[in-house]
Design a protein around this nucleic acid. Sequence first.
RNA 1: GCCGCGGUGGCUCAGUCGGUAGAGCGUCUCCUUGGUAAGGAGAAGGUCGAGGGUUCGAUUCCCUCCCGCGGCUCCA
Length: 641
Amino acid sequence: MPSPGAGTIRLELPDRTTREVPVGTTAEEVLRHWQPASAGSWLAAQLNGEPIDLRRLLASGGRLAPLTFDDPAGRDIEQHSAAHLVAKAVTELIPEAKPTHGPPTEEGFFYDFQMRPLTAEELPALLDRMHESIRRKDRFEREEVSKEEARRLFAHNPHKLRYLAEAPEGAPVSLYRTGTFVDLCRGPHVPDAGWLEGIHLLGFSSIQPETPEPGATFQRVRGVAFPTKPALDAYLKRRAEAEARDHRVVGPRLELFSFTDELPGFPFWHPKGMVVVRELEAFVREHLAEAGYSEIRTPLLYPQATYETSGHWEHYRENMFLTTADERSFGVKPMNCPGSMMIFRSRSRSYRELPMRLAEFAPLHRLEASGTIHGLLRAREFVQDDAHLFVTEEQILPEVQTLFRWIDRAMRTFRLGWSAELSTRPTKFLGDPAVWDRAERILSEVLEQSGVPFKVSPGEGAFYGPKIDIHLRDSIGRSWQCGTIQLDFQMPLRFGLEYQGTDGGLHTPVVIHRVILGSWERFLGVFLEHCAGWFPPWLAPVQVRVLPVTERQMDRVGEVTAELRAAGVRADATDSADTLSKRIREAETAHVPYIAVLGDQELQHDTVALRVHGQKGQRALSRSDLIALVREKVRTRSYDP
RNA sequence: GCCGCGGUGGCUCAGUCGGUAGAGCGUCUCCUUGGUAAGGAGAAGGUCGAGGGUUCGAUUCCCUCCCGCGGCUCCA
């Protein structure tokens, strides 16, 4: 490739064509020349993969590409620009507010301020200010100043000074000016506020800053932005639909569970909900049987001494329900580990018994902070699909591989997307670093083999070992940790666990604490939102509802219902008091997947008219075919009825 | 736990500028025997989250508490 002439730079565009332009040409000019028709959809550009402003004067060559709102990087630029607009409005209305930072988030953006609490009455004024800017199409202008000058400019704002201190010495820093508002910012930004037509504030709240300052209060304003109003409207519609799936509304309406003010955070499982829980348990127990687990039951209450051994007394006491009896202090167990350890320890063990896999589905109690309780997703009492695997170091790999196969199968059954997070050795850790390294390598290898996206959180592991967390999302996109696979080198030592190895010596096992679905509560909360209350047939509390057209068919309704039940199908029936349409509607709103109607025609041919959720119309089926159909869907755990 | 907002029949909500409350759905009863998402009529059901204060009088105003919602922190 010939080198460009003096004072010119060479740019390669996405279609591999190149342009030679004078230094100081803007990115936009080059791109517009290349593809004039699409210019309106660009909110920024990328030079060698680095996002830059469209109006940026190009000083060096490289690969140049436009960014649209549909590019993840473009979306982030839109959000971050919207954050500036919020900061502009807030500081104009409340001059003493000190902006800190305003990054894009997965959903939208936020901007944090050191300021007194906002009130709901102030929001309309904020929005007005923002929309004025949008109408005027206020430009986002980049400036570069020396660090010293920036320090003078932001002398009143300790947060900006802190960010400045982190910037490299000697190099200029960039500012972005939008109308009267100037922010210390790397950029880039959309060209002007007209790009933020679809801005929407999601709310505001106080936050705890990363660097707490006595007496200072901080507010976070959250929002989301789209380039156009119709795009925002589409988002708001989607969001409203997602909110309608809220398990805290759907669950009680389907008579699955309820809560009471007298005991916040404690789910009451109603008959229909209990059916679902039992089916989930059965699903998990199938895996336990295949994978060689044994089930145990251990006490719910342990004395202080046990928790001192396990480390809970030191590290977890403030989250425990404590009680006193016979002048001794007890705690209700927040986790199952101590009981499992004590069963392992109950007699001497041989390497031949490993891996020893002990599962326990016991109610756990955790005194979660009152502000964090959230329906089934964050309860104070819940049951995990918990197990502890006592293994040798060599057995870690195959065991974790088996767990991942099971996670994959489980999540496919529920059609749930999931992500994983690997947390590695923290600065404060116990045990041998070499063992940690090996264990972390095993976990990341298995994750890579699984093909599931995962992120690594360096130093976020527990003090006793590295872990993998499995995350699921609720209907409005909030992420919840459900499964977790934790390697533990520590608790076996604290409990003095030993087994006799092939060498005749005594060794300490490694313990894998693992839950897969998480807890029945959290998992069902997420899944209820995922399926919008339409459980697959195998989980549906009522699988078939039998309806007579008139009371002439009542006897046959009784027969068919009894037959279904005898075949292990969960069936119920209505009488003929309401109109057929009304009873169909009730069955639909109760989310019954199969509705079997019996009229004179069906009586004559000994069939049922079956209406299947998600399918149009109905079809005639013999009684035995109906039973076979439902049983097959249940046996295969089909997602669709 | 922190900040903000909220709490009216089972549910969704209206209302009372301080004079103790209404609707729809649901429930119950009766009529209707209807062929795939709401047939008709009538009735029952609320000390307006709890306690305290101000007032002749508080569901309404003030305070405290409880609970809920959205964030923050934290977590299955």
